[in-house]
């Protein structure tokens, strides 16, 4: 890690923590709403559909990476409160992924459901993106407190699938671009680093 680990645990005042929590909820929702509104107004450049697809896709990936980094940061900085932000960040990642899928169905395919099925089957990059989406969906549902409680230790095993999701999403990105590779590869490298740092925990499946 680049920064020295502090000796004392970090604990921020309650009002500050509430503000952080609020920001985690408001930033992704407001941002997406504004982008969507600009799309309706034809203010997103030449192809608003492509813009929204990119925005939601990369947004989901960023949020997923962020949610997977939370525990490392919390541990490193002895900042236990951070852990409470992990669930909402993860859920917003899933929310963006579903927005991505919805934009694809509604605006890219314009509700041609036959096409949707055949594209998911025919195009490997869409197949793996869809699998990542299903994983995020499953993890979102099992994030409900009462389900989480009833699952016990199995919950932790199941939620390790988030690492599979970030890898699939990274390859989904790498596979769809026309040329060049460095942006998706940066995500894949970050995913690799996260996997490496959590290798001990991941082994105990």
């Amino acid at each position: 890690m680049l920064l020295m680990s502090p000796r004392k645990p970090i604990r921020v005042p309650r009002y500050l923590f509430i503000a952080c929590h609020l920001a985690v909820h408001l930033a992704p929702t407001i941002w997406l709403s504004v982008i969507f509104y600009l799309g309706l107004q034809d203010e997103l450049g030449g192809d608003p559909v492509q813009y929204l697809l990119d925005f939601t896709g990369i947004g989901a990936l960023n949020l997923l990476v962020a949610s997977l980094s939370v525990s490392l940061l919390a541990q490193h900085f002895k900042f236990a409160q951070l852990m409470k932000l992990r669930r909402p960040i993860g859920l917003y990642s899933a929310f963006y992924a579903f927005a991505h899928f919805t934009v694809y169905i509604a605006f890219e395919l314009q509700f041609e459901f036959n096409m949707l099925v055949s594209e998911i089957i025919k195009r490997p990059y869409i197949t793996i993106g869809f699998v990542a989406l299903l994983i995020l969906g499953l993890l979102s549902i099992t994030s409900l407190s009462w389900i989480k409680k009833s699952m016990g230790r199995k919950w932790f095993s199941l939620h390790k699938l988030s690492y599979l999701a970030v890898l699939l999403a990274g390859f989904h990105y790498l596979w769809l671009i026309k040329s060049g590779w460095y942006e998706p590869v940066i995500y894949l490298v970050i995913a690799g680093i996260l996997l490496f740092m959590k290798r001990e925990k991941l082994r105990k499946l």
């Binding site: 450049g45 925005f55 990369i58 942006e183």
Partner: peptide
Amino acid sequence: QRRELLKKMGYFGAGSLLASSAANAGP
């Protein structure tokens, strides 16, 4: 003016992690 507004908003998706040239990074 509209473009200025767009620019100031940045780009949550790519902009927050890397200055991307994703297929469509406009504003």
